[in-house]
Structure formats: structure tokens, C-alpha cells
């Protein structure tokens, strides 16, 4: 197990190098030019050449890459060309909002999705099953921006204490505060603001988890060892929850891990609609402005977090199914 973790961490190195090259290539080869985006409408070709030289974009691409990668190795992701601030600072300051939103959304999806999926599987081909399917499909067939706008228009506009946009406080910190000082104001503020964004992301999450749990559980319930368990005279509940669900959760955990990771950089549309100050918006704004250092550093950082989350997911297989060995 320990050896496996070490090996996976070593495998991270080529992935990160690969990502850094791919991202660097993409931003430099795709059309779009940071200097053009920065220059005002009045700029002359001389201005262009001058700024290109100042920011070092007149050098060959491989030279730019090596310089950037060398600095990145020492922990220096460079300075944003549009905002003038260090990239690592910009990204780290956005991560709490992003991770919190991803976490709460996934939590919402899991809390609602797994029970719904289990019930649907047990009550297979009954109205309950059908109902759970329709709910799930509604979730997955509506684009995020549409769910968000519907929530805003039909709920937030009529319920005074639900805000339209922005982030009030930190839910994690609020929870800590509630536990340590019995002060719930920060938590209340945090929850108020995170509610709608989390619901609009969580809906799709829930849909996927519900469907996957149901099918996976049905699949597992047909397996030999379940039949053995039944034959041993174990109660149906024990069979479903102890033997069935545990094995059925394997693909569910996989998807949850992927979704959690994808949400770090991918909840952009929801972040935009709710004006949520997350990292996804930072990176996509940077893409639009061709702020290369932020795009490069941001994607690299996201990739790092993402691979770590997925390493944890892979490790959790062993807990869910002890027969899986890491060799």
C-alpha cells in the first residue's frame, strides 16, 4: 500500500510535466495574443512591439517554456501580465471559495443521490423507481446556466434572505466558529450564499449518482456472493447495505472523484451566473484576456489538486473492496 502511494506520486511527475507542456502549447499556439488584448484601441504597432519585448513574448516559444518551467519548479508561477499580482497568490486566494462550492455540491449530490438510487434499486420497476429516474434525468438534462437562472428568478427573487450573487462567508470556517464559539452568524451567511450555486451544480451531480447507484447496486445484487449471503439466511437489509452497497459504490466513488476534480476548474458557468469568486472564473477570465501566466499556473495547480483527489479515490477502492490489491 505504502509502496503503491509512493509509486503513484512518482507517476505524478510525468503527468504534471505533460500538462505543463500541453497547456503551454495550447496557450501559445491557439489564436489570441495577450498584448493585443491588453492594448487599448488606440495602440500603434510600435506600442505592440514595445510591450511584447517588455513581457518577453518576442522570445522563441521553447525558451519561454523553459524559463517558465524552471521558475515553476522553484515554486514561482510568475506574475499575471494583466493584473500585475503573483499568480500563486491569485490562485490560492480563490481556492477556498472553489473547494467549498465543489465540496458542498458533491455532498448534496451524495446525500440525495445515494439514498434515491438505493430506494430506486430496491423498489425496482415501481412508481418510486420511475419517479427517481425522472428527477435524475431532469437534473442531468438541464444546462447549469439555465437551472441557475430559474433558481434566481423563481426562488431568490421571492425569498428575501437568499442572496442573488456573491459569497457571504466561509462555510467551513463558520462551522468551526459554531463549534468553538457557538456563534452561527458566519455559518449562516456562508450557507445563505452558497445554497443556490451548490444546488445548481449538485442537481446534475445528484442525477448521475442516483442513476449510477441504482444500476450498480442492481448489478451487484445479481452476483454470486450476494446469493451466497442470502442463502446464508442473512436479512435483506444486511445483504443490501453490507454486501451490496459497499461493492456497488465503486463506480460511484470514481464518478464523484472525477466530478469533484472537474468542478474545481469547470464550474465556470455557474460561477459566472452567481458571480461566485472562484478559481474557475479566474482562469476563464484569464483565457479570455490571454493572461498566459494565470492560465498556465492555474491549470497546473488544478491538475495537481485533481490528481491528488483521484489518487485518494483509487486508494478508496481498497477500502470498499478489499479484494482489489495494488500491485
Amino acid at each position: 500500500m505504502f509502496k503503491y502511494i509512493i509509486r503513484r506520486i512518482l507517476q505524478l511527475i510525468p503527468v504534471i510535466i505533460g500538462i505543463s507542456i500541453v497547456v503551454f502549447m495550447i496557450v501559445h499556439l491557439a489564436p489570441g495574443d495577450p498584448i493585443l488584448m491588453m492594448l487599448g484601441e488606440d495602440a500603434t504597432p510600435e506600442d505592440y512591439a514595445r510591450l511584447q519585448r517588455i513581457y518577453g513574448f518576442d522570445r522563441p516559444v521553447h525558451e519561454q517554456y523553459l524559463r517558465w518551467a524552471g521558475n515553476a519548479l522553484q515554486g514561482d508561477l510568475g506574475v499575471s501580465i494583466r493584473q500585475g499580482a503573483p499568480v500563486s497568490y491569485l490562485i490560492v486566494s480563490r481556492l477556498p471559495a472553489t473547494i467549498e462550492l465543489a465540496f458542498i455540491s458533491v455532498l448534496l449530490g451524495v446525500i440525495l443521490g445515494i439514498p434515491l438510487g438505493v430506494i430506486a434499486a430496491i423498489k425496482r420497476e415501481t412508481p418510486i423507481d420511475f419517479f427517481s429516474m425522472v428527477v435524475a434525468l431532469l437534473g442531468v438534462s438541464m444546462p447549469g446556466f439555465w437551472i441557475a437562472l430559474v433558481l434566481l428568478t423563481y426562488i431568490a427573487l421571492h425569498v428575501g434572505w437568499i442572496p442573488m450573487f456573491g459569497r457571504g462567508g466561509s462555510v467551513f470556517y463558520g462551522l468551526w466558529q459554531l463549534i468553538t464559539t457557538f456563534d452561527g452568524t458566519e455559518l449562516y451567511d456562508g450557507l445563505r450564499y452558497i445554497m443556490l450555486p451548490a444546488v445548481s451544480i449538485g442537481t446534475a451531480m445528484m442525477a448521475i449518482i442516483t442513476r449510477l447507484t441504482r444500476s450498480s447496486l442492481l448489478e451487484v445484487m445479481g452476483k454470486d456472493y450476494i446469493r451466497t449471503a442470502r442463502a446464508k439466511g442473512l436479512g435483506e437489509r444486511v445483504v443490501v447495505f453490507k454486501h451490496g452497497l459497499r461493492n456497488a459504490l465503486l463506480p460511484v466513488v470514481t464518478i464523484v472523484g472525477i466530478q469533484f476534480g472537474a468542478m474545481l476548474g469547470g464550474a465556470v458557468i455557474t460561477e459566472t451566473v452567481f458571480a461566485w469568486p472562484g478559481a474557475g472564473r479566474l482562469i476563464v477570465n484569464a483565457i479570455q484576456q490571454r493572461d498566459f501566466p494565470i492560465v498556465q499556473g492555474g491549470v497546473l495547480m488544478m491538475a495537481l489538486i485533481f490528481t491528488i483527489v483521484n489518487l485518494l479515490v483509487d486508494l478508496s477502492y481498497a477500502i470498499l473492496n478489499p479484494r482489489i490489491r495494488y500491485d
Binding site: Q11, P14, V15, G18, I19, V22, V23, I26, L29, A30, P31, G32, I258, G261, A262, G265, G266, V268, G280, I283, V284, I287, V295, V299, M302, A303, F306, T307, N310, D327
Partner: peptide
């Protein structure tokens, strides 16, 4: 399993960890 698995899955990680919108823009831009 083993090396094949590692190579394939790390490659998948590589695709997954680039935000899909950036990837889409890149593909469409190319």
C-alpha cells in the same frame, strides 16, 4: 495492470485535469 494501466490512466488524468472549457477552446481554435 502495471505499466500499461499507469500510462493510460495518467494520460486520462492529463485530459481530465485541463478544464474542459479550455480544452474545448483549444480544440476548436485549432
Amino acid at each position: 495492470g502495471g505499466k500499461t494501466d499507469a500510462v493510460i490512466m495518467r494520460f486520462m488524468d492529463l485530459i481530465l485535469s485541463i478544464p474542459s472549457i479550455l480544452l474545448a477552446i483549444a480544440i476548436v481554435a485549432t
